[in-house]
Design a protein around this nucleic acid. Structure first.
Lengths: 185, 185
DNA sequence: GTCTATAGTGGGATAGAC
DNA sequence: GTCTATCCCACTATAGAC
């Protein structure tokens, strides 16, 4: 009665766990705190889920579903620069759910516990916007790096970080030359 | 007898702590494990350092000194594309010391415990290579993002990640146009 | 499906003797 | 500068009664 966390009580536990995580961060997401928030004792949780890893995986899957949908909506407007549109949606998701974002991106993904195809679905809009897997990977690295360095306050708090975003977006907007600037053949 | 960890025993403790970290990762860096590695009991450590945070800060400072020197050497060869040269040195450092790299870049910097100017010194070579603080920030985000996503195995293990590196390096090599491509004025 | 009780592990840190 | 003894904390998880 637990593996995929599909019972209604199971879904409630995951929802409350996500709220706890989003409100107070990953270190607050303990079985004791979660039980408190539900008004039960920690051991009772194990009637609904096998272990903590399954809880985290369920929360992560939840986050990916939501992010994927947001990215798909953003790429649908079609009017704007597709990379800029993706970046806006990505930054909005991370800003709205910083602790969830960290859980989703910090450390290896528990892929075997996630729904098939979910990771690929989430990645698809950026793949589409950049036009190639290699460029998508580079663009994701830039975007994720900016997000995480900002969250960790690794940049000075001046106006330059917005310029850095612009700089990266324009760098990934159009395919770069394959060799250093020379006169066109 | 502890704050800056300047005594010879203090320096030895930091060195052994760094070895432990590099060999087994951040979760192995406990006061008990460190004491074991030194052949003493954990409480004895507190005669040499005030708390665990000071140990981590000293290890981080150690890593920054080493990284800064490596980056300075790499920018000195002058012959090559400066961004590519920096990336090579940065990747080499992270690959040689992945657990140290994570400690240095994961989470906020304990700046008040680090030598003045060390962070700026480490950042200087990339600033030089990119030509502007905003571009340096964007390039660092790309490079750090690539490193951390690779370490966490977030990319598929195909040949495309090397292409992503190339893609990012060429994207940050030359200043991009400030507006979409138009004919030069 | 909830409870009490508890096992088992690990962590950082202090007091005070030597 | 090292020791022993210990405190206090927190965590995941299980057993078995109700």
């Amino acid at each position: 009665m637990s593996e995929p966390l599909t019972s209604s009580r199971g879904r409630q536990i995951v929802a409350v766990g996500r709220e706890l995580l989003e409100r107070e961060g990953a270190e607050a997401l303990t079985m004791r705190r979660l039980a408190d928030a539900l008004g039960i004792r920690a051991p009772s949780l194990y009637k609904h889920l096998p272990d903590k890893a399954s809880l985290e995986a369920a929360i992560i899957a939840d986050g990916f579903e939501q992010a994927a949908t947001a990215f798909e909506v953003a790429s649908d407007d079609g009017v704007r620069d597709p990379v800029a549109a993706f970046v806006t949606a990505y930054r909005a998701f991370a800003a709205a759910h910083p602790h969830l974002y960290r859980l989703m991106t910090g450390g290896p993904l528990p892929r075997e516990r996630l729904p098939r195809g979910l990771e690929a679905r989430t990645a698809a809009p950026l793949l589409q916007a950049t036009g190639s897997p290699a460029r998508a990977r580079a663009a994701w690295a830039f975007i994720h790096g900016m997000i995480i360095l900002e969250l960790d306050e690794r940049f000075p708090s001046d106006g330059l970080t917005e310029m850095a975003w612009e700089s990266g977006i324009s760098a990934f907007r159009t395919p770069p030359p394959t060799s250093p600037p020379t006169s066109p053949a």
